[in-house]
Amino acid sequence: MTMNTANKWAAGIADTYALGLLAEAVGLGLPVAALPFWSTALDRHPATRRSLDVLRATGVRVVYGEGGWTPHEPGTGERRVDAYPWERVLDAVESAG
């Protein structure tokens, strides 16, 4: 999930099909997990922290930080894509269900 997606999702903005599904899943109480992917520069923005707090408060398991995924330095994301730990978000959904 990108920072833009996290902020929209946390605000309840469902302007794409994917965001609509995520918002509805939260409303239905389905197990939902998110695995962020953004830079350290975006991570320092106050809206990012607020959005993660809101998502966690609604029951979304945010796989982020120690033991999850950590932000990358600006301009290095392409080099980290192959190491993106999809299995961690799948594990988070399984443990929530």
Rank of each mutant, 00 (worst) to 15 (best):
M1S: 13
M1F: 14
M1W: 13
M1A: 10
T2M: 02
M3Q: 15
M3E: 11
M3D: 14
M3G: 11
M3V: 15
M3K: 13
N4E: 12
N4D: 15
A6Y: 04
A6Q: 08
A6V: 08
K8F: 01
K8R: 13
W9D: 07
W9V: 09
A10W: 09
A10F: 08
A11P: 04
G12N: 08
G12E: 05
A14S: 10
A14G: 10
D15W: 04
D15I: 03
T16H: 02
T16M: 01
T16E: 10
T16A: 03
T16C: 06
Y17K: 13
Y17P: 11
A18R: 05
L19D: 11
G20R: 04
L21K: 11
L22T: 09
L22V: 09
A23R: 09
A23H: 09
A25C: 03
G27V: 09
G27A: 12
G27M: 03
G27S: 10
L28Y: 11
G29S: 07
G29V: 03
G29E: 07
L30H: 01
P31R: 08
P31W: 07
V32Y: 03
V32P: 05
A33Y: 04
A34P: 08
A34V: 00
A34R: 02
A34G: 00
A34F: 00
A34M: 01
L35Q: 02
L35Y: 01
L35K: 03
F37G: 05
W38C: 08
W38P: 06
S39R: 00
S39D: 12
T40D: 08
T40Q: 12
A41Q: 15
D43N: 10
H45A: 14
H45Q: 15
P46K: 11
P46V: 03
P46D: 07
P46S: 04
A47F: 14
T48L: 13
T48V: 13
R49D: 14
R49P: 07
R49N: 12
R50H: 12
R50T: 14
L52W: 05
D53I: 12
L55Q: 06
R56S: 10
A57G: 12
G59Y: 08
V60S: 01
V60E: 03
V63W: 02
V63T: 05
Y64W: 11
G65P: 06
E66F: 11
G67I: 10
G68N: 01
W69E: 04
W69L: 05
W69P: 00
H72V: 07
P74N: 01
P74W: 01
P74H: 01
P74I: 02
G75D: 06
T76C: 06
T76G: 04
G77T: 00
G77V: 04
G77P: 03
E78V: 14
E78Y: 13
R79G: 05
R79E: 15
R79T: 15
R80Y: 10
V81H: 14
V81T: 13
V81K: 14
D82V: 15
Y84C: 06
P85L: 08
E87S: 15
R88L: 15
V89F: 02
V89E: 01
V89I: 05
D91Q: 03
D91Y: 01
A92S: 09
V93F: 00
V93Q: 02
E94P: 04
S95W: 13
A96Q: 07
